[in-house]
């Protein structure tokens, strides 16, 4: 029951946030000088002969794209259908709806982000655990040096570095394009490097923290071997909070695909967003921005829920507990570390 209330509350917040994001985006872009109509007209006007025709054409084009009415009316005209899921037609690709464009490109970006996240996790967890259990050893210092270096190379910096090494220097891989797994290799690597670094550091400090806990000493005092105590008491509790970091990082990766797609020419939603911003394609820009926002919020919700499932203390906080008489205070807010992209 409390879970339902929790979910409902979060859903309301999600919808409200989406609304504010859409208003902000729409309002800001309307404030800006220039519009899709204007840009198109300017393009056409430069080839035209008389300046009088340009003005005429501008107003014509503006009328066509509904840009001749006040901003709030424009927003209303957009919002009405948008609530029913109809995001309208793109200006730049007039033959497709925004929804169809997003549905076409989103899977590519999501796949990139998810694979990169998986890779980052697989690399980061063992490195972090080994560094923590061999604290102050050569392995610890060495791996933490590498890992800290990695954190300084988010998305496109890593991307450029990889291109310099594998394309410009070694000539092993193509710099861009999208025609098979070979082309996904560098984008995935570029995305994975920084999150892997951040998570490896997090795992290390988290394991160290748990190793200092009295219940670990207590488990050893009960006669547990090192391996058993590590598996049953240390790792479980140390890796649980990783969810709180991995969630926002994954959201960051989805956003990071914007740059990666620009660099590597990957046909994803990030490229769509960039193009829309450049030519002021309002419906497409609104659609892509809201998609990113929605992904981010769903990711946060997922983090909270999965953490609740993993940690019995929060589970009772969400009301998922067997025994509702013992509820701890609301911990979900505290869980969300500030690891925002």
């Amino acid at each position: 029951m409390q879970l339902v209330v929790f979910l409902l509350r979060r859903l309301v917040r999600l919808v409200l946030s989406l609304l504010v994001v859409s208003m902000l985006t729409f309002g800001l872009l309307s404030l800006a000088p220039g519009s899709f109509g204007g840009i198109q007209a300017a393009g056409a006007g430069s080839t035209g002969l008389a300046s009088g025709r340009t003005v005429d054409l501008t107003s014509q084009v503006q009328q066509r794209y509904g840009e001749d009415v006040p901003v709030w009316e424009q927003y209303g005209n957009w919002l009405g259908p948008a609530i029913t899921g109809d995001l309208g037609y793109s200006y730049k690709y007039p033959e497709s709806t925004v929804g169809a464009l997003i549905a076409d490109k989103l899977p590519v970006s999501l796949a990139l982000a998810l694979i990169a996240m998986g890779l980052a996790l697989v690399v980061a967890i063992p490195i972090g655990i080994l560094a923590a259990t061999r604290r102050n050893s050569a392995w610890d210092h060495g791996s933490m040096f590498v890992v800290t270096t990695a954190t300084a190379f988010p998305t496109y910096l890593a991307g450029i570095l990889l291109v310099l090494i594998f394309c410009s220097w070694l000539h092993w891989l193509p710099t861009g394009g999208w025609a098979g797994p070979k082309y996904a290799l560098l984008p995935v690597l570029a995305l994975a490097i920084a999150p892997a670094g951040i998570m490896a550091r997090y795992v290390r400090s988290s394991v160290l923290e748990v190793l200092r806990e009295e219940y670990v000493v207590a488990a050893v005092a009960k006669g547990g071997s090192w391996g058993v105590v590590m598996r049953r008491h240390v790792l479980r509790n140390a890796l649980m909070p990783l969810v709180t970091v991995a969630g926002p990082l994954l959201a960051g990766l989805v956003v990071g695909t914007i740059f990666i797609e620009t660099i590597f020419g990957v046909p994803g939603i990030g490229g769509l967003f960039t193009q829309a911003a450049q030519v002021r394609d309002m419906p497409l820009l609104m659609g892509t921005t809201l998609t990113f926002a929605l992904l981010l919020m769903l990711m946060n919700l997922l983090v909270d829920l999965s953490y609740a499932v993993l940690d019995p203390r929060t589970r009772s906080g969400l009301g998922l507990s067997v025994d509702p008489a013992h509820r701890s205070e609301d911990t979900t807010g505290a869980i969300l570390e500030e690891v925002k992209p």
Binding site: R13, L14, S17, L18, V20, V21, L24, T25, L28, L29, L31, A32, A251, G252, V255, I258, F273, T274, A277, Q278, R280, L285, T289, F292, A293, L294, L296, M297, N300, L336, K340, P341
Partner: peptide, 18 residues
């Protein structure tokens, strides 16, 4: 709360466009 839903980069891109 709202900004948690608005990726910093997206916001910066839109602002820079504006």
């Amino acid at each position: 709360d709202v900004m948690y839903a608005f990726p910093t980069y997206l916001f910066a891109v839109i602002l820079a466009t504006v």
